[in-house]
Amino acid sequence: MEMKNLEQLRNLLYEEDEVKVLDEINRIENALDLHILARNINMNDGFQVACSILNNPYCDLGTALLLFYDADGYRLLTEDIEKISDRLREWKEFVLLLYNRIVNDEFSNKHISFIPPLGKVDIYKMKKKNPDIPKVFLEPSPGKEIGILSIVEKKRGSQT
């Protein structure tokens, strides 16, 4: 990836005009750029940017899974969603929508692999709580494994 392109993606992450950000994401025609953005967004600010990435026709299944796990979607796989606090309504709507899109195979691009951050014990415990978890959430997705670098600036004293 060219440094110029990385700089453009970094600038997009720090852009304060949300309409401009969403418009720029809609124009991206490269699955890798979308994946890099997904890896670097902060969903604590809301799910608009993540939804824009997911709605881009170039979004890859690996990117969708990355966003699912980054949004703590694994909780959906192991907990009763109805018992999760209504304070988290926006989160519930996002992960449920994303879960259904993944299960319904709505991401036709499958060029970027995502490996779920789960060990054998994690998978065992998850299956014990919910034996019907679709395999797509537990196994590496098809595609090429890509090491994605962080393009956001670290704060002083930050460990990540």
Rank of each mutant, 00 (worst) to 15 (best):
T63W: 03
T160M: 10
D72L: 15
L37H: 09
I146V: 15
A71H: 10
L96P: 04
L65R: 04
K155F: 07
E18K: 14
L32S: 08
Y14S: 04
D105Q: 15
M1S: 13
Q48C: 04
F94D: 01
V136N: 01
G62R: 02
E24T: 14
F47C: 04
Y58C: 07
S141L: 00
L22T: 06
E139R: 07
V19E: 13
S141G: 02
N30P: 07
G62K: 03
E15K: 12
Y124R: 15
I41D: 02
M126E: 12
A38G: 14
Q8C: 06
E139Q: 10
E15H: 07
N109L: 12
P117T: 12
K110G: 01
K127I: 13
Y69C: 02
M1G: 12
F107V: 08
I133R: 06
P140F: 00
L65W: 01
P117F: 03
Q48D: 13
Y99F: 12
P140A: 03
N11H: 08
L98A: 05
H35W: 10
D60K: 05
L76S: 01
M126L: 13
K4N: 12
E2T: 14
K92I: 05
D23V: 10
L54C: 08
C59D: 02
S141W: 00
S141F: 00
I115H: 09
K120S: 15
E7L: 15
K120V: 13
L13E: 06
T78M: 14
E139Y: 06
L67W: 08
E93D: 08
S108V: 14
L67N: 07
Y14D: 08
M43P: 00
N104T: 12
N5R: 15
L67S: 05
D33C: 11
D72T: 15
I102F: 01
I146C: 09
D122C: 04
V19C: 06
K4V: 14
G143P: 01
L149D: 11
R10G: 03
N26S: 14
L54I: 09
W91A: 01
G147F: 13
N30M: 09
V49F: 02
R89S: 10
D80E: 12
L13N: 05
I133V: 09
Y124V: 07
M3Y: 13
E2C: 09
S85M: 07
L149E: 15
K127E: 14
E106D: 10
N130H: 07
I102G: 00
